[in-house]
Amino acid sequence: MHSRGVLLLTGVLLLAGCSSPSDPPPSPPLSRAATVEGVVPSSVPSPTSVARKPVTVVLDPGHNGGNSSAPSVINAPVPAGRGETKPCNTTGTSSDDGYPEHAFNWDVAQRVGALLSAEGVRVVYTRPDDSGVGPCVDERAAIGNRAEAAAVVSIHADGSRASGAHGFHIAYSSPPLNPAQGPPSLSLAEALRSGLSGGAFPVSTYLGTDGLAPRDDLAGLNLSERPAVLVECGNMRDASEAAVMSSVEGRQRYADGIAGGVLRYLGL
C-alpha cells in the first residue's frame, strides 16, 4: 500500500519500506482524534486502565490520501513475505460517487483509536494523517513489530464489482509463518468478526467463509510478528454499503464493532 524514503510514523494492520526510527511512533494527542467529526474521546482513563500496564494496539488505516500523486513511490517493489515482492502501496478504491477508501479507513481508525484509548489502551497509528504518501506495506508491518503490539488491525474497504458482492471479511496470514500468525491471529480475527456481526454488519457474500479469509498474499500480514488481521469493512461499490460508509453514523458503527472486537480479544 509507499516509498522506502517516506517516513510517516506518528499518531496509529493489513492490505497496503521505508526507513523509520527505532522506536514506534507515539499516539496522537486526544485533541487530534477529536477533530474527526463525531469522535469525542474520553480525557479521563477508566479506573481499570490506571491499575494495569497499558497494552499496545497498532491501527493501520489502509492507503493514504497522497498516494495518487506519487506513482513512482507507491509502485516501487518492496518485500511482501514468502519470497515475494509487491508494490509499496496502492491508491485504494472509492464509492461510485467518489468517496475514497483512504478517507474512510482514516476516519474509522481514528474512531477506533478513541474508543480504545478511553479503555486505557496505548494506540499507535501507521500514518499520522490522510494527506501523505505511504508508508509502504512492509514498513506498516514493521511498525507493529517494533511496537510489540498485542494486536495489529489494518482497516480497509473493498471495491469489488461482482454482482451482489457485499459484507465484511477479516483476513489473516495462512499458512502461518510464525507463532503469532497462528492461533493468536485467528483468535483476533474471530473476535473482530463477533464485534462487527454484533453491530449488525453482514458477513461477506463473495470472499472468505463465515466472514474469515485466510490469505497468503498480503504483505502486512505475512511480515507481521504480532497477532495481525486485515478488516475489509464492506464493499464500497455496493450502493447500500457505500451509503453507510459515507455517513458519520455508519463509520461510528464500524468503529464500535472493531473496537469491541479488539477489546474482546484483549480480555478488557
Score class of each variant (00 low, 15 high):
residue 102 H to D: 14
residue 102 H to C: 09
residue 124 V to T: 06
residue 169 H to Q: 04
residue 266 L to V: 01
residue 224 S to I: 01
residue 256 D to N: 13
residue 166 H to P: 05
residue 211 G to A: 00
residue 60 D to C: 08
residue 14 L to G: 14
residue 29 P to D: 13
residue 143 I to W: 03
residue 11 G to P: 07
residue 78 V to R: 09
residue 80 A to N: 04
residue 116 L to M: 08
residue 84 E to C: 01
residue 32 R to A: 11
residue 10 T to I: 10
residue 73 V to M: 12
residue 62 G to V: 07
residue 214 P to Q: 07
residue 116 L to R: 03
residue 25 P to I: 04
residue 98 G to W: 09
residue 74 I to G: 00
residue 148 E to Q: 15
residue 59 L to Y: 01
residue 199 G to Y: 01
residue 169 H to L: 03
residue 198 G to I: 04
residue 142 A to G: 11
residue 4 R to K: 12
residue 93 T to G: 05
residue 66 G to P: 08
residue 71 P to T: 08
residue 31 S to Y: 09
residue 170 I to C: 02
residue 267 G to P: 03
residue 146 R to F: 07
residue 171 A to T: 09
residue 233 C to E: 09
residue 148 E to V: 12
residue 168 F to P: 02
residue 212 L to D: 00
residue 216 D to F: 01
residue 222 N to G: 00
residue 72 S to L: 12
residue 109 A to I: 03
residue 45 P to T: 10
residue 221 L to W: 02
residue 197 S to T: 12
residue 110 Q to F: 09
residue 165 A to C: 08
residue 241 E to M: 11
residue 207 L to M: 10
residue 30 L to Y: 10
residue 233 C to Q: 12
residue 154 S to V: 02
residue 102 H to Q: 12
residue 114 A to W: 06
residue 132 G to E: 06
residue 31 S to D: 13
residue 187 S to F: 02
residue 22 S to P: 14
residue 218 L to Q: 00
residue 81 G to R: 03
residue 149 A to Y: 04
residue 85 T to I: 07
residue 70 A to W: 02
residue 180 A to C: 10
residue 255 A to C: 08
residue 124 V to N: 01
residue 22 S to W: 12
residue 41 P to T: 09
residue 252 Q to I: 07
residue 190 E to D: 12
residue 78 V to Q: 13
residue 179 P to W: 10
residue 46 S to K: 15
residue 264 R to E: 12
residue 208 G to P: 00
residue 238 D to V: 06
residue 224 S to Y: 00
residue 197 S to G: 08
residue 125 Y to E: 07
residue 239 A to D: 15
residue 105 N to I: 04
residue 8 L to K: 04
residue 43 S to W: 12
residue 223 L to K: 00
residue 11 G to Y: 03
residue 57 V to Q: 08
residue 3 S to Q: 05
residue 58 V to Y: 02
residue 46 S to R: 15
residue 206 Y to V: 10
residue 260 G to R: 04
residue 216 D to T: 02
residue 28 P to S: 08
residue 37 E to C: 06
residue 179 P to L: 06
residue 58 V to G: 04
residue 48 T to F: 14
